[in-house]
Amino acid sequence: MPDDIALAVEGVGHHFGAATVLKDCTLGVPAGAVAALVGRNGAGKSTLLRAAAGVLRPYRGTVRVFGRPAGPDVLRRIGFVAQHAPLFRTLTVAETLRLGARLNPRWDAAHARRLADAAALPDRARVGALSTGQRTRLALALALGKRPDLLILDEPLAGLDPVARAEVTGALMGEVAERGVTVLLSAHVVADVESVCDHVVVLAGGRAVLSAPVEAALDAHRLAVGPARDAAALAGHDVVELRRDGAEFTALVRAAGPPPGGTAVAWHRPTLEELLLAHLRADRPQPAPEVSAA
């Protein structure tokens, strides 16, 4: 049922020169989800988003959008806003929207106009004179005027002040409520996505180390906190990250059944931030763990 899955990435690999960016990357985003793509700088988020948008063809693997290969075939179903919302700086707001109408067969002029008006964008202002927040709103209006089924946004909130951030997220969530558009957005500030996304993808070491609905991901992990001498309680668990803090340790583990009792170790359901940070921190050459899990 290809329409259940908005985006299916399988075994994708890509490199720029000698630098490998993606390596056997596999993930899926269900239709209707608001998915956050999280990863450290240079983790390959932009490369993955560009591959999904069909503007980059990865060297290996397949990318499918609603069951069809990413590329010209599905381009009209995708709204893509690249990083820093690139637009023609010398065009005015009105000219930018007219260009959108010219380039997109499914263009919904009334909708694009509503979004531009809601953002109070002056028709005759040149794009180059807009604030970052206004430019993002215009880029969003342009992407949503296409009436896309999948909206791909590369760091849409980066560089925005708090007011613009709230406005952009509000506009985005209104669109999700109204049309059920599937959203895939990258972010490196976890707090930005916490109340927005219901699906999360963590990119680390060129792979998707986690790709799951948020609630299921939280259910599938435990944060173990206890005295370092009780770290043996972690034996047999799949440890994502282990940190020592004086005489205590904190470890994120993949949950396998109810936690063992009998030690002073407390097992908590992690918050989304704890979950993501642990996966992201694990994305670096690990020194030998200080506390042996055996």
């Binding site: 608001v34 997220t169 509000g170 506009a171 969530m173 999700v176 109204e178 219901d198």
Partner: peptide, 12 residues
Amino acid sequence: REVAERHGVNPN
């Protein structure tokens, strides 16, 4: 939709 738009939270 009103709550989602006003507070920037997922409508679901």
